[in-house]
Design a protein around this nucleic acid. Sequence first.
DNA 1: TTTGATTAAAATTACGAAATTCTCTATATT
DNA 2: AATATAGAGAATTTCGTAATTTTAATCAAA
Lengths: 214, 214
Amino acid sequence: MPTELTLYEALRNRLIGGEFEAGQRLKSETLRHDYDVSASTIRETLFRLSTVGLVDSLEQRGFRMPEQSTELRTDLTRTRIMLESEGACLSVRHGDVAWEARLTAAHHELKHIESRLRADDESQTLLKLWADAELKFHRTLIDECRSNLLKEFHLQVFYRFRQQFVTTDREFGFVPENVEQHQSILNAVLSRDEALIRARILEHLSRNLQEDQP
Amino acid sequence: MPTELTLYEALRNRLIGGEFEAGQRLKSETLRHDYDVSASTIRETLFRLSTVGLVDSLEQRGFRMPEQSTELRTDLTRTRIMLESEGACLSVRHGDVAWEARLTAAHHELKHIESRLRADDESQTLLKLWADAELKFHRTLIDECRSNLLKEFHLQVFYRFRQQFVTTDREFGFVPENVEQHQSILNAVLSRDEALIRARILEHLSRNLQEDQP
DNA sequence: TTTGATTAAAATTACGAAATTCTCTATATT
DNA sequence: AATATAGAGAATTTCGTAATTTTAATCAAA
């Protein structure tokens, strides 16, 4: 049981879990009591979270949950498409059969949770499991790209993506199309067709794009 | 007169300016005296710098200048190629004549400094000017890509790139080829040929790639 | 001479409190 | 009624200190 979360991880999970409203103030004076630490420690953690965009930091005005915006969601989606496509194609070039196996395993677990979710899409525990499994699948997808920077950026974008969409989209995550789309991505990877991989990732994420410009 | 630098910016400039050696300890107890602030304030700033990779943070062992490594330099170079190519191509699609003008202006200033540097490549003031001008040129190149995330990531990579290469490569920046290469990039942009732009950026940065794998 | 242990010094981390800044409400004015 | 002002209260930021941990330095033993 991983109860050994750092303060950073604990706060991050709450920030991307839809607990706070967009624009809501995050008072270190209040948050300190949830973890029984001093205000300085909370402040430090909030500062670190602000450098990866999960918290907005205003000079002399403390910290806030980031605002919602269509522009940001579009940017996050496009950037995720770029990083994930690039990472997946590089992984296909460098990855061996063991990587294919790991990706297949991650997909299998994800599929299992998604099918259970179709029966009961209210269960909070299932939703938690789904969130972890989906992250695992998408991270495994780019795992063999041989660029730590790309992986760090992807993770950063992934968290902010979650944060923006979880609170907006009530049906975030468990749309039935996802199940087929994840399967399509896996198939594309196993066929090692880079153009197809890019197309499938684009297809999977493009439903989050609501824009005027092409 | 920009003497109004924040502590963060001041420290960042020193970290990418080649003042510290790789792996060197950055003692908050020592640094606090340079700015006449408390150790906590320095600590906080070092923490923020560590989240963007400009400082290494070791649990209970303080902060250090990041180590040199060929792997990191390769990663930084490749990632910069990816972000800068993508950003430049997007800018070409979205940017108007005013952007072309700004890029041409930035290149003109850079060229001027580079030519002066050929006569006197020891001058520290010229080197400072060159560093600013080169950053300006490469940032303007991707300025109209319409993705704040891409621009943030690019800036982050650019700073770490500087940090890694400045301390290694004594001749960093003022190799004569740079002058022609910057010109080539500008020409490619003005011709609006995306494949050519990518090729020129790759050409410009690939001399920093020393690798076995293809 | 090298290795290992012990001790002293120095540094990092966490905390609590003072000082500055902002926020909110009540009151006065146009 | 709407706007502006003033003051009390709350929150943020900075600082100095105490406690824990690491680093180094000294000395003894192989």
